[in-house]
Design a protein around this nucleic acid. Sequence first.
DNA 1: CGCACAATTGATCACGATCAAAACCAGTGG
DNA 2: CCACTGGTTTTGATCGTGATCAATTGTGCG
Lengths: 211, 211
Amino acid sequence: MYTASKQVSSSVVVAGGFARPFGPGKTFFWEGDEAVTVYRIETGVVRAVKYDEAGEREVIAFFKPGDVFGVPIDPEYSYTAEAVTAVRCSPLSAGLWEASGCKRTQTTLTDAIRAELKAARERVALISHQSSLERIAGFLGSFSEDSMADAMALTIPQLDIASYLALTPETVCRALKKLKDSEAISMPRRDAFVINDPQALAQFAHAATCH
Amino acid sequence: MYTASKQVSSSVVVAGGFARPFGPGKTFFWEGDEAVTVYRIETGVVRAVKYDEAGEREVIAFFKPGDVFGVPIDPEYSYTAEAVTAVRCSPLSAGLWEASGCKRTQTTLTDAIRAELKAARERVALISHQSSLERIAGFLGSFSEDSMADAMALTIPQLDIASYLALTPETVCRALKKLKDSEAISMPRRDAFVINDPQALAQFAHAATCH
DNA sequence: CGCACAATTGATCACGATCAAAACCAGTGG
DNA sequence: CCACTGGTTTTGATCGTGATCAATTGTGCG
C-alpha cells in the first residue's frame, strides 16, 4: 500500500535536536512507519492525514508552532505527517522520551498525548451538530487563538480545511465568502486568512445559524 | 453547575477492587469531579456524556465489558459516566495507577489512554462523511465485534445512539427499520439488537448508499 | 505559453432535520 | 387489575442545508 514509506523515513532520521527546514508538501513520515522520531514545530503548519478503506485522503489534524507531532503512542505512527507550509522544526529521538528516567520526560509525553486527545475531541466538537458556517468560524477561531496576534495570517489550502471539517471545497468557499462579506475576516491571498473581528467570528461559531 | 457532584462521588469511593452492581441510569461520576477512581466493567454498558455550552447533552462514548473508564488523563474527569444498563464493575484507586512504581501500571495506563484515543477516532470516522445508514451499521458492527457472539443482544436506547452518532432519533429509527427489513438485524425488544448477518451489516457500513 | 490544479460561481438534488402526532411501553398509584 | 403518566419509539409530511454536477476563473510552475 504505502510503498513510498521506506525511502522517506530514511531521509528523516536526523534526531539530533537541530531545527531543520522542510518545504511545503514534504512528508515527515508515513502512517505505519516505525515511530522513531518526534517533532516540535517552530514555524509553519503541518497536517496529519489518513487514508480510509476507499483510499480517500482525509485530514485529521493540524499542528502549529509549539505543537508536538509524531508522539509515540503506538510503536507505529498512526497518521501521515506532511508540511502544509514551509516548516522549521526540531526532530527528537522518540526513544529518549520513553526510556530516559521516568520523571520529566514522562510528564511531557503524557502532555503530548493529552494534546492529541484534546485535538481529536475538538474535531468531533466541530464536526458533530455544527453547521458549515459554524464549523469554519470555529475552526478559524480556535486555530488563531492557539497562535498569536488577532491579525495573524493562516496559510492553509481550502481543500485541507474542507477535508478536516468533513465538508466539500465548494461549501468551504461559500462559507468563507460569507465571513469575508461580513468583514469578520479578510483574505489577502488565496490561502491566507486574517481575522479582523474575533468577536464577530465567535458569533458565527456558536450562533444558531444567524437567522 | 453540576451541583450533584459531591454526594455522588462520595457514594462511590469504594476503591477496594470489589465488583459492585450499579442500576441503570446511575451516575458513576460527573465531569469536573476529581478523578480518584478508575472502573473496569465486567458486565453491562456505560455511557460517557458531555454537556456543550448550550446545555445540550451529548453522548461521546460507550464502554463495554472489559473496557476501562475514568482514566486519569487530567486531574479531573473530562466526562460524566452513567450506567446504561445494569452494570457490574470493579472500582480501582486512580492513585495506585499513577504512583506505584512505573513499569506495569504505567503500561496499562497508556493502554487505557490509547483506548480512549482510539475510541475518539472511531467516533470521528463514523460521523464524518458517512451517511446515516452507514453510521448505524458501522456502529452496530464495531460494537458487537468488540463484544462476543454474533447473536448478542445489545441494549442501548436509540436516543443515546442518536446522540452518539450526531443524528436525530427519527433518523436512527428509520435506519434501524431498513436494517430490520433487510434481515441483517432483528430487535426482540425495543432497545435490544441482535445481529443476524454480520456480512450484510458490513455491506451497509461501507457501501456507497447501495444505489 | 500552456499545463495542472485550486478556487469560485451557479443550478439542481437528496438526505437528514424539523415539525407534528400517534403508538408503544414501563412504572406508579388508585 | 386497570387507569394514568412520562418517556421512548414510531410514522408521516415538509423544509433547508450541503452535496453534487458542471463550467469558469484564477494561480503557480515547467
